[in-house]
């Protein structure tokens, strides 16, 4: 028995994502000048600007000295050649 929702949110996936396929960005950050820049996570976003915002708000567990996002498609693997995943979550 399904509940009738008064106003189910309609999402235009293509518009929301700027395309039909989700676009992923990998998030890298360093805590302070002495720490390594590390992979801390991954976000899905339709464009670079939203990826920056989502990364900053989701991975806010530290006051990062530096943070950057890299489109997953820009990553060229060395060890993971031919695998389905290039880089996997934090």
């Amino acid at each position: 028995m399904a509940t009738k929702l008064k106003s189910r949110k309609k999402i235009d996936q293509k518009r929301e994502r700027g395309g039909t396929d989700p676009k992923y960005y990998e998030v890298f950050a360093r805590k302070d000048s002495h720490s390594e820049l590390s992979h801390v996570g991954s976000v899905e976003a339709p464009n670079d600007q939203l990826a920056q915002v989502r990364a900053w708000y989701i991975y806010d567990q530290h006051k990062w000295k530096e943070m950057c996002v890299v489109p997953l498609e820009a990553i060229i693997t060395v060890t993971e050649e031919g695998k389905s995943a290039k880089i996997k979550m934090a």
């Binding site: 989700p22 992923y24 996570g41 991954s42 976000v43 899905e44 989502r54 708000y57 989701i58 991975y59 806010d60 979550m89 934090a90």
Partner: peptide, 11 residues
Amino acid sequence: GHAQMMYRILE
């Protein structure tokens, strides 16, 4: 934020 990460894994 935790949910986002878990859904990201599910994707």
